[in-house]
Structures are given as C-alpha cells and as structure tokens.
C-alpha cells in the first residue's frame, strides 16, 4: 500500500510544529529553516499553506541528477537524497518545477522530503490533522499527482 502525505491547508493554524519536527528528524536541530516541509502564511487571506514534495512520478530532480544521488525508496515511493553521492551541484533545485528540493549551505548538499522512511514526523507532530499520512488510493493524492502532471507538460 502506497502512503502519501495529505495536506489540508484549511486545517493549518501555522503553529510550525511540523517544521520543528522535520528539522529535528532531518538535521538534529529545532530550526524551521532546515525543515523539508514549509508553512507559507498568507496573512491578508488568513490562511497557512503547508508545502513539501509530493514524491511525483515524473521525478524531475532524480532524472536531472548527474551523479545518481537521488533514488527511489521502493517501500515508500519517496525520492531520497543519497548524501554520500550528492556533490551539491544544485541542478535538482532548478529542475524540480515545484521548488521542493533546496540547497543546504551548511552541509553543501541538497535536502528534500524523504517521508522519514515511511513514518513522517510532520504528520505525527501536526495537532490539527492538516498534515496526515494516508493510503494514497483514497486521499487527495491522485489529485495532487494530476496537478503535478499538468503543471509541467510531460514535454
């Protein structure tokens, strides 16, 4: 069963606990700037939008990598960075049309959501179920995937 992160912006209160949990899991620090999931506040509209990688089928980042440092985790479907192989060239950060691969100057490598190996901390930390980890078949995952396919014509 493929699981996916499901995001419901309407439930997000902007508490940033997901960012804390993510940065702690990924980098060992409580620092939102090191989080793979980001909350974007829209103050005028009164809405918070959590945003991270949808693990899209196209995997632009993975194909663009010149040294095979992005691979698919067969169990979770996540596209994962292999730190030992990543040279920090950043091509994936421009190739991903969703802007979900970011360069981390401290490590000299890129970071992206890896679904925490199948137990995403952001979803566990979210107190309002704005972020949940669910069976991909009955969630909005397909909708997001459709969007991903449409956003960039499969050239």
């Amino acid at each position: 069963m493929q699981m996916s992160l499901v995001i419901d912006a309407n439930k997000c209160t902007g508490c940033l606990q997901c960012e804390m949990a993510c940065s702690y899991e990924g980098e060992g620090v409580f620092n939102p700037t090191k989080s793979r999931i980001k909350i974007f506040p829209f103050h005028d509209e009164g809405i918070f939008v959590p945003y991270t990688c949808t693990q899209c089928d196209e995997a632009w980042c993975m194909h663009a990598c010149p040294v095979e440092a992005i691979v698919i985790n067969k169990a979770t479907g996540a596209k994962e960075i292999v730190n030992d192989l990543c040279v920090g060239c950043k091509v994936c950060t421009i190739a991903c049309p969703f802007g979900t691969v970011n360069y981390n100057a401290d490590s000299g490598k890129v970071i992206k959501c890896d679904l925490c190996g199948g137990d995403p901390e952001c979803a566990k930390a979210c107190p309002t179920d704005a972020i949940t980890y669910q069976d991909a078949n009955w969630t909005g995952y397909d909708k997001m995937k459709d969007y991903a396919a449409k956003a960039v014509p499969a050239s």
Binding site: K38, T93, I94, P97, F98, G99, T100, V101, N102, V152
Partner: peptide
C-alpha cells in the same frame, strides 16, 4: 537565493 527556486521553472513551463 537557494530555497524553492525551482518554482521559477514551474511557473514558466506551466
């Protein structure tokens, strides 16, 4: 700028 820069590609290509 190193965060979310890929969206420039996304916006251009979509």
């Amino acid at each position: 700028m190193t965060q979310h820069i890929g969206v420039m590609r996304g916006l251009i290509q979509s």
